[in-house]
Amino acid sequence: SQQIATAKDKYEWLVSRIVKNHNENWLSVSRKMQASPEYQDYVYLEGTQKAKKLFLQHIHRLK
């Protein structure tokens, strides 16, 4: 749906803004993002596993 696509774009923007180093780990980054509406919306719509998967894809691109 359009809502999910929009939430994903915003979440990816948030991840790219916060995660600048491929050594970052999911636990510390997800804690930093918990207060962000972009993170909350995406997790609400798609779940934590998908959020983690996108985070890991971003990390992989930074290597």
Rank of each mutant, 00 (worst) to 15 (best):
A35I: 05
H58I: 09
D41E: 15
P37H: 11
K63M: 02
A7W: 04
Y42W: 02
S36Q: 14
S28F: 07
L45H: 07
S1R: 08
L45Y: 11
I4H: 09
L45S: 07
S36A: 14
K63E: 08
K20P: 04
R17Q: 15
V43Q: 03
H58Y: 10
H60R: 09
F55Q: 01
Y42E: 00
K53V: 12
V15G: 01
K8D: 03
W13V: 14
E38D: 09
T48H: 14
V43R: 03
N23V: 05
Q49Y: 08
T48D: 09
R61K: 13
S28E: 15
I59W: 02
S30E: 12
I59Q: 09
H58M: 08
V43E: 03
L14C: 00
A5Q: 14
Q57M: 11
L27D: 13
T6M: 12
K10F: 02
K8E: 06
W26T: 00
Q57Y: 07
L56W: 09
Y42A: 03
K63Q: 11
Q2C: 09
H22Y: 10
V15K: 00
Q57W: 04
Q2K: 11
H22V: 11
Q3K: 10
A35W: 09
E12T: 11
Y11V: 01
D41I: 05
K10E: 06
E12G: 06
K52I: 03
V29N: 02
D41N: 12
T6K: 10
Q57C: 05
T6R: 12
L62H: 00
S16Q: 14
V29F: 15
G47F: 00
M33W: 00
K52W: 03
Q57F: 02
S28I: 05
I59L: 13
D41V: 06
I4Q: 05
Q34G: 07
G47R: 06
S28V: 10
S1E: 05
H58A: 06
Y42D: 01
L56F: 05
I18A: 02
S16N: 10
F55K: 03
G47L: 03
A51K: 02
Q49M: 12
L14N: 00
H22E: 13
A5M: 12
W26F: 09
W13H: 15
S30V: 12
K50G: 12
R17G: 05
K52A: 02
L62N: 02
V15R: 02
G47N: 00
G47S: 04
K50I: 01
V29K: 04
H60G: 15
Q34V: 09
T6P: 00
V15A: 00
S1H: 09
D41C: 08
L45T: 04
W13C: 15
Q57S: 10
S28T: 14
K53G: 09
E12N: 13
Q49T: 13
H58F: 11
I18F: 03
S16F: 05
V29G: 03
G47V: 01
L45A: 07
K52E: 13
V19C: 11
N21T: 08
F55D: 04
V15I: 14
M33T: 02
A7L: 07
P37N: 05
A51Q: 00
Q34S: 10
A35L: 09
Y42N: 06
H60I: 07
Q40S: 06
I59A: 06
D9G: 12
E12I: 14
A35F: 10
E46I: 00
A5F: 05
K53L: 13
S1T: 12
N23K: 13
R17V: 08
L54G: 04
L54H: 04
R31K: 14
L45N: 04
H22T: 14
H60V: 10
K63C: 06
L62Y: 06
V43T: 07
V15H: 05
Q3A: 11
F55Y: 09
A35K: 13
Y11P: 01
K10G: 04
L54D: 06
W13F: 14
D9F: 14
P37V: 10
K53N: 11
K53C: 12
Y44M: 15
Y11G: 00
A35T: 13
I4M: 09
S1L: 09
E12C: 12
L62M: 13
D9K: 13
S1G: 07
K52L: 01
S16P: 05
W13P: 01
L14T: 04
K8S: 06
E38A: 11
G47D: 04
Y42G: 01
K50E: 12
E12Y: 08
D41T: 12
L27T: 14
H60S: 15
V19R: 02
S30M: 14
Y39F: 11
K63V: 05
E12W: 03
P37A: 09
L27N: 14
R17D: 04
A51R: 01
R17W: 03
Y39A: 04
N23C: 11
V29C: 10
H58D: 00
H22M: 09
I18G: 01
R61Q: 11
A7Y: 04
K8F: 05
K32H: 05
Y39S: 03
W13L: 15
Y42S: 01
I18L: 13
W13I: 14
K20T: 12
Q3N: 11
A35R: 11
P37F: 04
L54Y: 05
K52D: 03
K8Y: 03
H58N: 03
Q40T: 08
E38Y: 09
L56A: 09
Q3D: 15
E12H: 04
V29Y: 03
K63D: 02
